[in-house]
Each structure stands twice: as structure tokens, then as C-alpha cells.
Simulated assay, not measured.
Amino acid sequence: MYWSAVSAFLVVLGASSNDLTQRELQAWKKVEPSIIYLMDGQSVRGTAALIDEKGFFLAHKTALEGSKVSGRWANGSKVSLTLVATDDPTQFVLLKANDWQSGSAPAISLSPADSSDRALLAITSNGPVRAERVANTYGVINPSRRFMPLSEVRMENNLNSLGGALLFNINGQFVGALNATLESPGIQNAYQNQMRGGAIRQSNDLNSRQAPVQIFGPGTMTTAYTISPKVMKRVIDGFKSDSHEVAHPAIGIFCRDAAPTGALIEIVSEGSTADKAGLRKGDVITSMNNVPVKNQFDFARIMLDAEVGDILTVWIKRSGLMQMIKVPVGK
């Protein structure tokens, strides 16, 4: 029974990789030793990548059900894992392989934070498939409702196999994992219209600057999103730390658009760095670090570029008067 299940498992992966180009196959061979398939009985639920040779794996939360996880390497051999940490803002999880021997497999390497590689490889529950990054944008990650920089990715594949799929560039470097997926232009447009008032407000179309890297066939195109390489690095660095905690920059306030311009502070969390620095509900932020803040999204973008420990120079309007306040970035 076990060997028949393993054989079927290997056939599925082989069928997927048969559609790849020689360069894509080379990338797959480079990353395959670092990938495990997360199982639900005899079915593949998702994928995980080794980020630390001590046996720590990264996966997307959608690939898990419970804190005890079983997985298989591409050759069919089994591995058991335990959930160690969850990063709620990005929905990534950290898993630890049980009875792990250091050096059993190579850890993945991470794509540079400023990377804009277009040709990608998505490691889905059905194996590797071709993908293409077409734009950089901003959006809200559900269910955390956190504003994040995102990359828009397109591929020709069954939507059901893409949830939490890991993304690598053609050099075999880790790029991210797929979050929300959109199967058709109609759905995509509806999603963007819905989010335009609260999430996706800016897009940097890579097609306008680079020649296409791939021609897809006549199958259904799927659009999906992954967080940016910079945020991905922050997640992995946090997971690999002694605390396994990801330090996302924050100052402890929630804003909405002010009229006619600026970001109006609606909530100041008690004990936060903003609270201690003197920011108050009703203040209107007009600039941060000499960058104009015209709305809540400008504020969010500046915060995303900050690092924990930075000191922000925040100009606010309070009772009609301008005031400058120095605010440390917390987490």
C-alpha cells in the first residue's frame, strides 16, 4: 500500500515537471532537495521550504490543519513536523521537523529584496509550474487586514492547486508564496474595484518596462499575489531568530484619509511608541521623514519601508497648528 501511494505521488510530480523548459528544470532540480509536500492522508495539501538547516521549514498557513503535520520529500520518504510559530500579518508559519539531523538537506536562498525577476517557478501541490511576475502593487492581506507591498503573478494552472504555492526565480532563489488567487479577468476586475477604496491603489506594471519572458497556451489564466521580497526577508529573518518572532514595523496608530489631505489618526494604542511620543486621536499627519502624507496609504507605504528601531520625523496638524514629533518605530 505504501509503495503504491509513493509511486502515484512521484508520477504526479513528474507529469508537472515535463512541461518545463530546460532552464526551469535546472531551477527545479536546485530547489527540489529543500522542498517537502505537506500531506492530508494520501493527498498533498501544500508545500514547505527548508529555511534553516536545523530543520525549520516555512509554509503558508493555508497548507496546514492543526499543529502536527506530516510531509513527504519528492522521493516519497516521510517527515513529521510540528508548528512552531505563526506570523499573522503575512499568514506564514514556521514548522520544525522532528528527529531532524543537521545537514540532512540544503536550506533555500532568498531572492534579493530589490529583485524584480519576471520568470518564476511556482511549487504547487501538483509539482512545479511556470509563472510570471507582471506587476508590483499594494494590497490588504486577509484575514489580518494588513496593508502590504505585493507582486502580481500570473500562470496557467488549476486554481485549486495554487493555495500557498512557493515561488522561486529561475536562479532557484525563494521569492514568496501565493496568497489570494483570481481565476478570471472578470473576477480580477471585481476584486480590484472592491479593494480600490481600501487596498490596491498603486500598480507598477512590469510589462511597460521589460519584454515578455513567456508565452502561455490557451488554458485558463490565474492571477495571484505574493508579498514583496523585502517583507519576505523580514519574515524569514524573524523565524530564524531565537524568538521565532517576526518584527513588523509599527508605531501603534490607525488612520483614515483626512479632508482635504493627510492621514487622520483615529486610534492610538495605549503604551505604543506613538502614544509615548505624544501623538493623539484627531491629529492629522501631513508628512513623515520629509515625505508628504496625502492619505492613509501614503502613511502605510512609509511604515512598510521603515525598520524596527528607526526614528520617524512626523509632522502633524493639531488644532490648526503644525507640530513636529519624533516617533520611534516599534513592532
Rank of each mutant, 00 (worst) to 15 (best):
309 G>P: 02
229 P>I: 06
97 A>K: 04
187 I>E: 09
285 I>D: 05
236 I>H: 03
112 P>A: 08
101 Q>M: 03
226 T>H: 04
303 M>H: 03
187 I>P: 00
49 A>R: 01
72 R>K: 09
162 L>Q: 08
10 L>F: 02
41 G>Y: 10
75 N>V: 13
243 S>K: 14
64 L>N: 05
71 G>I: 15
154 R>Q: 15
77 S>E: 15
307 E>I: 01
154 R>P: 05
93 V>D: 11
265 I>G: 00
122 A>N: 07
48 A>K: 02
106 P>F: 00
53 E>K: 13
128 P>S: 00
98 N>I: 15
232 M>W: 04
23 R>Q: 11
105 A>D: 04
328 P>N: 01
54 K>I: 08
231 V>C: 09
270 E>D: 14
113 A>N: 10
254 F>K: 10
288 M>P: 06
181 T>Y: 07
229 P>W: 00
130 R>M: 12
306 A>H: 03
240 K>V: 05
77 S>L: 06
307 E>P: 00
237 D>C: 06
173 Q>F: 01
152 E>F: 02
317 K>G: 08
189 N>F: 03
3 W>R: 08
43 S>K: 14
293 V>H: 01
5 A>E: 14
57 F>I: 05
58 L>S: 05
94 L>M: 10
195 M>S: 08
91 Q>I: 09
144 S>W: 12
120 L>Y: 11
2 Y>I: 10
17 S>K: 11
288 M>A: 10
198 G>Q: 02
38 L>H: 02
58 L>K: 01
207 N>W: 05
208 S>V: 08
283 D>I: 10
181 T>A: 14
252 G>H: 10
153 V>D: 12
49 A>S: 09
270 E>N: 13
301 R>M: 12
41 G>M: 10
132 E>M: 11
68 K>H: 12
230 K>T: 15
20 L>A: 03
239 F>Y: 04
181 T>G: 11
